[in-house]
């Protein structure tokens, strides 16, 4: 039940886009088509889950062990960058097909603040290893849900007569705001049961 709370919280209630404002650059940048948004989502889910695991281990057995917590930001960003590089190499060697669909998104992910964000939040929430991994995956799925829904909507307005000065980022931000209003519907879901 406790894990279910983390999942529902990460996907619906504290959605990374609509409630926590994490990972907005790729959300606004890679959401023009559903296909590319889906590719990016798979890469993000993969990396955020792995990064949650890796940073948790590094935090416990390196930073906490040797009282180096003040190095958290530096160490985490290096771990994430190395992880992304490593994942890219492994995918390239083992599955060229997967590389073709995910490869172009991987370099973009190092600077996705959702990845470092989830790593830092896992530590500040004092999650254990399994909770961290579940939180990483659930948060990434929530982020993916947001970007894929957004891409579906964005494809629809390709031919709309949007006022010229609102085209591009302005309309994308307003649309995200309206979507976050709809997501208010999930506020308080299962309170008293799961939370």
């Amino acid at each position: 039940m406790h894990y279910l709370a983390i999942i529902i919280g990460g996907v619906l209630i504290n959605n990374y886009i609509f409630s926590r404002f994490l990972g907005l650059c790729p959300f606004l940048g890679v959401s023009k088509q559903v296909e590319t948004a889906t590719g990016m989502s798979l890469a993000v889910i993969f990396v955020m889950t792995m990064a949650s695991a890796a940073t948790w281990i590094v935090n416990k057995y390196l930073l906490v062990q040797y009282e180096l917590q003040y190095m958290q930001t530096i160490v985490f960003i290096l771990v994430i960058a190395a992880l992304v590089q490593f994942v890219e190499m492994v995918i390239l060697k083992t599955s060229p097909v997967l590389y073709q669909s995910l490869g172009i998104y991987l370099p973009l992910i190092t600077t996705n603040c959702a990845v470092l964000g989830v790593a830092l939040l896992n530590i500040s929430e004092e999650y254990n290893f399994l909770e961290s991994v579940i939180n990483g995956m659930a948060s990434a799925i929530g982020w993916s849900l947001a970007i894929i829904l957004f891409a579906g909507i964005r494809e629809r307005w390709a031919f709309a007569e949007i006022p010229p000065s609102m085209r591009g980022f302005p309309i994308a931000l307003v649309a995200t705001g309206l979507m976050s209003i709809a997501f208010f519907g999930f506020q308080g879901l299962f309170r008293g049961i799961l939370f």
Binding site: L149, G152, A182, G185, F186, Q187, G188, L189
Partner: peptide, 24 residues
């Protein structure tokens, strides 16, 4: 929402959320 959500009524949010799924 009606049974387990934070609001007594869920009709309006249900329609708004389904609006987001219409393209799919």
């Amino acid at each position: 929402i009606r049974l387990w959500g934070g609001y007594p009524e869920g009709v309006s949010y249900s329609i708004l959320l389904m609006n987001l799924l219409v393209p799919f």
